[in-house]
Design a protein around this nucleic acid. Sequence first.
RNA 1: GCUGGCGUAGCUCAGUCGGUAGAGCAGCUGACUUGUAAUCAGCAGGUCGGGGGUUCAAUUCCCUUCGCCAGCUCCA
Length: 635
Amino acid sequence: MSEVTLRFDGHEKKVAIGTPFLDVIKSLGKLKETIAVQVNGQPRDLPSRVESDADVTLITFDSPEGKEIYRHSSSHLMAQAVKEVFPSAKMTIGPAIEEGFYYDFDFERPFTPEDLDKIEAKMTEIVKRDLPISRMELSKEEAVKLFQQRGEPYKTELIEEIDTPPISAYQQGDFIDLCTGPHVPSTGKIKAFKLISSAGAYWRGSEKNKMLQRIYGTSFPRREDLDAHLKKLEEIKKRDHRKLGKELDLFSISDEIGPGLVLWHPNGAIIRKTLEDFWREAHVKAGYELVFSPHIARLDLWKQSGHLQFYKENMYAPMDIDGMPFELKPMNCPFHIMIYKSHLRSYRDLPFRWAELGTVYRYERSGVLHGLLRVRGFTQDDAHLFCRPDQIESEILKVLDFTTFVLKTFGFDSYDIYLSTRPEKFVGSPERWEQATAALESALKQKGLAYQIDPGEGVFYGPKIDMKIKDVLGRSWQCTTIQVDFNLPERFGITYRGEDGREHQPIMIHRALMGSIERFFGILIEHYAGAFPTWLSPVQAKVLPITERQRDYAGQIQQRLRGAGIRCALDDRNEKVGLKIREAQLMKVPYMLVVGDREAADQTLSVRNRAGESTTMTLEELQKKILDEIATRVG
RNA sequence: GCUGGCGUAGCUCAGUCGGUAGAGCAGCUGACUUGUAAUCAGCAGGUCGGGGGUUCAAUUCCCUUCGCCAGCUCCA
């Protein structure tokens, strides 16, 4: 029998051709954690056999590939269980996703939580059977026949579209699913799993197709990892900005006003005001100028901008004013362009950086509205830069610096960045696209920011950089977008007088850092779990006198702190201090200032923070501490 | 928009297999003068999301409409 050499990371091993990788891994003592192998870069099942000399990497759950395989095998396990419990369910597709997996079934009714329990119990049983999972390869005809026999029409539809034979399928017990693999070697490998939810989903994601029943689940090799994940889901629930928004009295959305329209209560409004002040001040410091624009404009403006053509489905019906149609604005850009157009512009003037907290209204389908994260009226932290083509790169560099500064202020320092390039339908010349895309890319590189290219995902009018921030729970949120626009300058015919005395067309860059104030606020609520840093907290300190005897002293403290610019409240009700503390704590007030006879006598404060730690300090010390936290925006 | 679920007091939630509803918290009133996450007592509070239908009778059953939630799709 001939031998070949397998090269593992750091060592080699000679094995006989035809040996299953399973045996090789077993001999290395790594069978337990190994899910599959990569042979010369190709993922393979453990039961597959050694064919030739090769570089072999062990795939474990710790790698993204490992997770994918593990979850995909989990989805097969679930599908097998569903077929055993509900034989009439037709299988469709069931991939691994970010934090788990799902499988879509065509079933006569939605699955209930009780169904999920039954399915989960069946999964446990199948895991106990520890069925070997084996790969089979079939011709297209064989595959179609097989799944026809098994009564799986969706599978045969999928097979019909595959034109790279052979077609592979995986079998465990008498369950067979169409799949490219690889998979874990047996059902017993799936250790800890949980079915999370079920909901409708369209066949192939199109609402024209039949609604299928999707079951979401997740799985881990170790029980404690599953528990940690479930705990995180709990934590996410607890942080839901809609729940905290109500509890902390930050905002509301009223039926009587309409869906997707936000009321900012005083507690939310003061946070917004603080955010906006910070935003404006930072922009002025970064060389922007502030502008304002109206909420409606003549329909003709939107015709000229092209919004009426390209953005119609997000715009509201026009209103009639003195026989003239006007339109509620879905964007701010045309207004800023009109500011540009109000003068003759010279190349010496460029770039212009005009920023506006511009409130826009967009029609969103009712099913997509979601708290503050998806609304119909919102304020963009918008800016438009008008520059010469040779200034694109330096402007983008500045925007990137500025963005990271702004986001860091809120503790967002980890991003996923996407560079979207020219789509199939586009305006402007390919050369311009190339130039602008290169400028964006070069700026990202100079800043040392890691990014991914999203080919063809640019907007029709120009390439863009999108940044997703990662919150404290590791969830990502799309906020920042930086878009080059060749279209609007063209449509509005804006120009500047060049060095050569001729008219040139400026480049326009749209950018929003937070995206929208509403959405960003929603993200912040969840990010901070409602416990805002001192500079943002609606109430920064609350004086809690123990009895009526300390009323005067408490009042003086409040006045002093208020006078220093600190948002300080006073709870002088005839209540026990335990209750006052409880309420202030639930409202997540950063500093609770307990004053009793002792403090009044010593002219001190018993300062309790949100963590429940108390220290005694003087008013001066506390004031300095709070002012310092406000100034540095930490704490 | 689609599919499913839900809508009962300011909030969180019970309940009625059809006979017009109940708790805790919040609110109000009173007592208590209080030491680091809930003092006690009393009172009041709901055309059971809106409209229509079936019925002697609807919060309950049916239809419709609005809104919310989850998912799909789409996006700041």
